[in-house]
Structure formats: structure tokens, C-alpha cells
Design a protein around this nucleic acid. Structure first.
Lengths: 339, 339
DNA sequence: CTGAAAGCGCTTACAG
DNA sequence: CTGAAAGCGCTTACAG
């Protein structure tokens, strides 16, 4: 059923019906109520394409994901939060899959030229990120999940990765550890750089030298945590403590430690960054896992809100947030064992 | 830039330009080439909303996810495959988040009434699924990932869950196991019922009684695998073998087994269903893990293709596939230890 | 092979 | 408070 037919049934003009449905003030209360009730009854909804043509707004927010690796648990949780917030305004998420950086850029061009979305969300930014300049030149509104050094006036939300790892490293130093390994993301990604900085800052503050052999880089998966940890354990002088970038890498690291015949929280201390996955809680591991905690789902929800604010006219420079990260001590961390 | 302006620059009519871009045959080859080249140069793309209004096709496929639990690794992999296939036709995935069965149904009504998508993908069907009847009555084309007993003419793709678990159970029986536990999904979901049937059939074939205490139900997560396995290990007569529903539950089960001081592949045999996650390979576990294998990413890609075929007019009854599942023996399965 | 024009289903200035 | 009509940017029957 389209507006014409729906208005006819009510013996009203399309104008009045449209205004009532859009919440415009100049409709008599009684008329509005009658229209709203009928819309529910007949299941009338404006055609999105027509609405998009007439208003320029399509009610969808875009996110571009690399088919290979970016459909993971972090993205899922983030999208759960994002979608949950957008759902309240009946805005959907448009996911475009790409297989390379190049096709990611051309996808933004496509989305902008065809006016397929009202805004996009950029994630996992690099130190200097070409996507920023592109989106600005396309005039496609966006919010960045993370930060970047790239020029441009845009909103973003990031967690304090620097502070998180600085805290966890300091805590391990307090416990007497000096050989502390870091399971980090790939270099070039801002969050990984920030974590590296936090790690190095904490070590430098105590005059502990940095050993590059203790810095691993990879995806935040069980398998990568396992493999990197196995590498650490093979070192002549193995670490006595590890900081894992995610719950997934922590699980992998714990497997490697156990298989090597050692105990987490006794032979090796472990702190993980916890993005708060509903299906894997640090309290239910054995031993319970000390973590730096920040809900990526909550970040997704807040970014959804920021996009809505952006589209309502809030200037991008007012949409910038750094979320603090909390260190939660549990049983996976202990004083270093005397040699 | 819109069509009018683009056509003006080329000194052609909108009609000719539109036809050239849509690949209609009645355009002179030279003209078409000139238009295609210019479109690339100027970055012209038809406005999706206008296209949607004019043609009734919007170039997006919908999928509705429950915000709570359905944004997980299985969904991610599936969507990676789906998106990868649809991307080739520049079709995007529209994700709508909901928080209940009820709001899922009303979301399908919204998507249909507002013509927001060309088709939807239904997943994790129940034995008798109200969504089927709704989508049929809405006239919204759809493909089901999984099967259902619900009436209605629709296409679907499913893996042979019955055969998979029947095979793994039989193999464990061949190895002399009689106490075999099953980490299954929630009852009511078709795939879980099929797996249960495969399990029971294999046991019955050998005259082995079914012990309900050995049948666990839950999400396919590390944590759920861990907790259910801990429960099994506390039984007076513990299982000597376990079939895990996913790699995630297998990892959790392995943790529980190790923490209990036992060895996988010696004290307890383990077979997992492997949906083939790129970041967790059964060959890299210790011990390597025997699995029943079927790529959920490949299923996503094929379902993307099936949706495209459906939209091109292939009758739904020609779009039905059951994929066989392969049992791969590795080192986590061994003959039962003499008591 | 090419073009002028109607129509897709809305919103929104403008008029009353 | 309500309505007639232009316009958003395409596609496509119809005419040539």
C-alpha cells in the first residue's frame, strides 16, 4: 500500500498523512491519532526509496568490512552495540564486503555517489589513513572508531589504549616482573601503536630495557595467541608475565602455557585486554583472569548515537571521546617467582 | 552529479545514457564505450533511491540478527561468505538488529512495507518457524540457511547435520567408546535436532543406550563448552569421548579436560564440528583435532548466489541443497583405554 | 540507434 | 489546520 491509497482510505490528502506520520506540528491532534492508528492497522510504511529521493535521507549507516579477517568477534560485538542503538530510530546497518584496501576506497565512492547511506563508520584506523581524506572529499559524513593522526575535521571515539597497557605493565612491574611480553596488534594500526607506547612508557619509567623479542604482533585470535606464546616460551630467557591484546589471544596463550607444563598465575602472570564478550568471561576462566576492561559493544552503541548526533547537525569537533579503561585484578597475576 | 547533468556533459539524452549503463543492447557500441568511460571518469553512479523507485529493486539483501547472541563468529563467517558473493554484483547486506522474536517479526514487516531490501536470509530455523509463514504472506523473497518443517515454498541450504554426528558417533563407537557425550545446540533448533538424531541413530544401531546426562545443550562458545564439559567430568561414570558442536565449544571442552588433569586423545577422545574459521585450525591444536568439516563461509557464499538466482526468477523449489559433511580423523581420537 | 515524457512514491514550499 | 502540485533522479514504453 502506498501513501495515495492509504490517504484515500482515510479520506485525507497525502500531505496531511505525510505530515502526521513525520510528526510535524501542524496536524490536528485527533487527525494525527486517527492516521497513526490506521498506519499500524494497515501496516503502512513509507517507501524507503521514495523517502530517500524526497528527503535525501535513506535511514542506513554504512560499514565496510574486509571479507577475509574483519568479520570477527570484535566486529560482531561492536555491530551488536551499534545496531542496538540505531534500531531505536529504525536505522539499519549496510554492510559492504571488500577484499582489499583499494576496493574499500572504491566502495566509499560507490556509497557516496549512489547515496546509499547517510553516513559511514570507519574502524581500525592507521596512523595516516587515506580513507579520511577520501570521505571528507566525498562529503560523506563519518565517525571513526579509534583515532588517527590524519588531518580533517571528524568525530571519533577511542578507548585509552595507552593508559590500559601502561597500567597493566606497571602492575606487573610492581609484582616484580621484568620480562614482560606483549601480544599486540599489527604495527601501523593506531590502537597497537598506543598500546606499544603504553608498554614502553611503563618500562622506561622503571628503567627496564625493552626487548623486541618480547613484542609479538598479530590478529587477536586464539591461534595467534597460542603461536606467539609458544615463541615466547622458546626464548632463552622466557617472559614471566604476558599482556594479551584480547580474550581470544589470552585463551591461546593460556593453552600454550599449559601445554608447556606451566601454570598461569604461578609460573607466568597474564593480563588480558577484555572487550567484554558475553560468551567469555574472565571470571569463569581457571584461574580467573586479570584484565583491562572496556566494552566494545558499549562503544558501538555510543558511536551509533554519535552518528545520529552528527546527522542532526552537531559539529564533528564536539563528537570526540576517549574512554578510560579499568584494570581489574583477579587470579592470573602474582608476584614473580624467585629464580 | 545526477543523470541529467551527466547526460548533458555527453550531449546525449538521459535515456541513452541510462540504457548504456544498464547494459541494454540497443545502444551503439561506440556510444556505450564513450558513456562507460565518462561514468568512470566523473564517478557517476545512479542514485539508489531513484533506481529503487523506478525499478523496484534496491540492491540490498536483509538479514535480521538478535543483538544479544547472534553477532558471533558463526554469523561473522557466514556473512563474510555472503558479502563476498554479493559484492560481485554490488549488492550490500542490510543488517537489522532486534532484541526479541517479536521484534524480529515486526522488522520483517517493516522491511517489506518500506521495500528496504530485495530479499532476506533467514537463519537458525526452528522445527516449526512462524517467520516462514510471515515472509510468505508479505511476499518478501527469502532463502533459509538451514531447513524447517514449516509449510511453504521456499529455497534453503543446509548441511547434513544428521550425517555428520552419525559419522562421528559411529567412529567413536568403532574405537570402543560407549560413554559418548554430545555438546549440542539448544533443542528446538533444527540443526540441533538433526545432530541429536544422528547421535541417537548411531548409538541405537550398536544397541548402546542413550544417557540424557551425556547430552548437553547450549551456545557454541568456549565458555559453554567448558562448563558443560566440567559437568560431564563430574558424573559418576564420566564419558570417554565427546562430540563438540563447534571449534569454540571444543576449545572450552579441552580446557576443562586439561584442568581436570586428563589428556585429550588419550584419556578422552574428542571430535568437533568445524565450520572452518580462518583463525582457528584443528591442525594447529595440540593434539590436532578430529573434526567433521563444512565451511560456513562457503555456505554463505552459496546462499548469496541462491538469492541472486531467486531474484532472477529461478523457482524456489529448485533452490534446495544439502551439503555433505566430511569426517577428518586427526589425533584427538583414540581407542578407549581399558578400565 | 536515439529521445521526449510519464511514472515510481514520497516531501514540502506555497496557497488558502 | 488542510490540500494541490512541483520536484527528488531514475527507468522504460512509446514514437521516430
Amino acid at each position: 500500500m502506498n501513501l495515495k491509497e492509504f490517504a484515500n482510505r482515510l479520506a485525507l490528502s497525502q500531505t496531511t498523512v505525510s505530515r502526521a506520520l513525520s510528526g510535524y506540528p501542524e496536524v490536528k491532534q485527533a487527525t494525527r491519532e486517527r492516521i497513526l492508528k490506521a498506519a499500524l492497522e494497515y501496516g503502512y510504511r513509507p517507501n524507503t526509496s521514495a523517502l530517500g529521493l524526497a528527503t535525501g535521507r535513506v535511514g542506513a549507516i554504512g560499514i565496510v568490512l574486509k571479507g577475509g579477517g574483519e568479520f570477527g568477534p570484535h566486529t560482531s560485538e561492536f555491530m551488536g552495540g551499534l545496531g542496538g542503538r540505531l534500531q531505536q530510530e529504525e536505522i539499519d546497518i549496510l554492510v559492504s564486503t571488500v577484499d582489499s584496501q583499494e576496493s574499500e576506497l572504491s566502495t566509499y565512492r560507490r556509497l557516496a555517489a549512489s547515496k546509499r547511506v547517510d553516513a559511514v563508520i570507519l574502524h581500525s584506523p592507521f596512523l595516516d589513513d587515506p580513507r579520511i581524506a577520501l570521505l571528507n572529499s566525498l562529503g560523506l559524513p563519518f565517525i571513526v572508531h579509534g583515532r588517527t593522526n590524519s588531518d580533517g575535521n571528524f568525530g571519533w571515539l577511542d578507548i585509552d589504549n595507552f593508559g590500559a597497557v601502561r597500567q597493566s605493565t606497571s602492575h606487573l612491574l610492581d609484582l616484580g616482573h621484568r620480562r614482560i611480553a606483549l601480544l599486540n596488534g599489527y604495527r601501523g594500526r593506531i590502537f597497537a601503536e598506543h598500546r606499544q607506547d603504553g608498554y614502553q612508557t611503563a618500562l622506561s619509567e622503571r628503567g627496564v630495557a625493552i626487548d623486541p623479542a618480547l613484542c609479538g604482533h598479530g590478529e587477536f585470535t586464539d591461534e595467534m595467541g597460542f603461536r606467539l606464546m609458544q615463541g615466547f616460551l622458546k626464548l632463552d630467557e622466557r617472559p614471566t608475565a604476558v599482556i594479551a591484546g584480547s580474550m581470544m589471544s589470552a585463551l591461546g596463550a593460556m593453552r600454550a602455557i599449559r601445554i608447556a607444563g606451566m601454570k598461569v598465575g604461578e609460573d607466568i602472570s597474564l593480563i588480558a585486554h577484555d572487550d567484554v564478550f558475553p560468551y567469555i568471561s574472565p571470571d569463569h576462566l581457571v584461574p580467573t583472569l586479570s584484565t583491562t576492561r572496556s566494552s566494545i559493544r558499549a562503544a558501538g552503541a555510543r558511536i551509533g548515537e554519535m552518528v545520529l548526533e552528527l546527522l542532526q547537525g552537531t559539529p564533528a569537533e564536539n563528537l570526540r571521546e576517549v574512554w578510560p579503561v579499568e584494570l581489574v585484578i583477579r587470579n592470573s597475576t602474582a608476584a614473580v617467582k624467585p629464580a
